[in-house]
Design a protein around this nucleic acid. Structure first.
Length: 106
DNA sequence: CTCGTGACTTACG
DNA sequence: ACGTAAGCCACGA
């Protein structure tokens, strides 16, 4: 497992400080690829969980993404609460002040 | 190698 | 603003 690509995604995600978040686009772009979908694919694989806080990754609009929306929030709802606890306020499946909490990859 | 799917993004109507 | 279509990359069969 851990093809270089997926591994980079996890590394970047882990690199994100607490209370901050990132988007699929920025994440993929930081890897030097446009694998927006690949990022999601790697997330659903998430072999590094909970080391890899996939809930810290949101859509370009700041929406949580396909976590909830499908099955009345089950696992996701919990993560949302966790985010709120860390300082990332999530309401109605969207991040509050999300642009300001966005983490810039160096 | 080819096909289908996906926790995505952008563009057009 | 919303819905559909096409494009993007990676992974599984």
């Amino acid at each position: 497992m851990s093809d270089n690509f997926s591994e980079q995604i996890y590394l970047q995600l882990i690199k994100v400080p607490k209370g901050k978040i990132t988007t699929y686009k920025a994440l993929a772009h930081s890897l030097g690829s446009r694998a927006y979908q690949a990022v999601g694919t790697a997330m659903k694989n998430n072999p590094y969980a909970p080391k890899v806080p996939c809930h810290r990754v949101v859509l370009s609009d700041g929406s949580i993404g396909g976590f909830m929306g499908k099955k009345t929030g089950k696992t996701v709802t919990k993560k949302i609460k966790m985010l709120n606890k860390e300082g990332v306020k999530v309401v109605n499946g969207k991040v509050v002040n999300f642009a300001s909490k966005l983490f810039d990859f160096e």
